[in-house]
């Protein structure tokens, strides 16, 4: 894609949206050439890590196309996709990127015209938002957070927690769920940002200053990260320990 143009990456499910995109072609419905389509078998395949990685590498917009609710070729894949994309949106927000840059649409195999319409609309929207801007560290932190098991469990189990309740039989309300998600996402994201900062040895204070976080919050994260053996004490400087990330960690 030429510099200056907005770049959009689309992940389309084979059965509905990809077929709809083909039908748009067969029917010659025109739309802007900004999108590059990647075929997946099901929208449920699309991993938040991949979505965030796409932004990290410079996409101005990411489009996910799946089957209409109930039409999923694999029954519930699109439902899970929706939850995962919500998660990815929360993380985008944390990283300071407009969540509208990520869009999920249901398009059926017979909706060629609609596909072209959605493409026109989304491209317009992204053009209005302009080229994407973010701090590389922040987006990287979002990527790693998406790869972390805690958020992955939450994204997948959301339905269960809402409908059947947790291990103690407590059923969550939508509101509680949203708060839980917001909190968890923020926590994870902060932790991952700290982890990234620790590519070079740093003390709690230094990190708190760099990331504009409260030292006690940073300290809590540091303890967690140590527990999971993601970081280690580097040295003790003037009675203050500095920490550093263990090698080979840090996600892709």
């Amino acid at each position: 894609m030429k510099e200056g143009e907005v770049k959009i990456i689309g992940f389309l499910c084979n059965w509905c949206c990809y077929a709809g995109a083909d039908l748009a072609g067969v029917s010659r419905f025109q739309y802007p050439p900004n999108i590059r389509i990647i075929r997946v078998m099901c929208s449920g395949r699309v991993d938040p890590v991949i979505i965030l990685d796409t932004f990290l590498w410079g996409a101005d917009g990411v489009f996910i196309g799946g089957c209409h609710p109930g039409d999923c070729h694999y029954m519930q894949g699109n439902y899970y996709a929706e939850k995962k994309i919500e998660m990815a949106k929360r993380l985008l927000k944390e990283a300071g990127v407009e969540p509208e840059r990520l869009r999920l649409e249901w398009v059926s195999a017979s909706e060629g015209e609609r596909f072209a319409g959605v493409m026109r609309e989304f491209t317009e929207e992204i053009k209005e938002l302009g080229k994407i801007k973010f701090e590389k560290d922040e987006m990287e932190a979002a990527c790693i957070a998406a790869a972390d098991y805690r958020l992955r469990i939450l994204a997948t189990k959301e339905k269960e927690l809402l409908e059947e309740g947790n291990k103690y039989g407590e059923v969550f309300t939508r509101h509680e769920m949203n708060r839980l998600l917001d909190d968890m996402v923020r926590e994870e994201y902060e932790a991952k940002k700290i982890l990234l900062k620790l590519k070079k040895p740093k003390s709690v204070k230094e990190i708190a200053a760099e990331l504009n976080l409260k030292p006690n919050v940073v300290f809590r994260h540091i303890m967690d990260l140590r527990r999971y053996e993601l970081i280690e004490v580097h040295e003790i400087r003037d009675n203050t320990p500095t920490y550093v990330a263990k090698v080979e960690e840090g996600g892709e």
């Binding site: 997946v40 099901c42 699309v46 991993d47 070729h73």
Partner: peptide, 22 residues
């Protein structure tokens, strides 16, 4: 059937969806 939903849900990213791998 190869939908790959398990792969994108796996908490350890231990599942490989062949032909559409990460």
């Amino acid at each position: 059937k190869g939908c790959g939903t398990c792969g994108s849900s796996c908490i350890k990213r231990a599942i490989k969806m062949h032909h559409f791998t990460d």
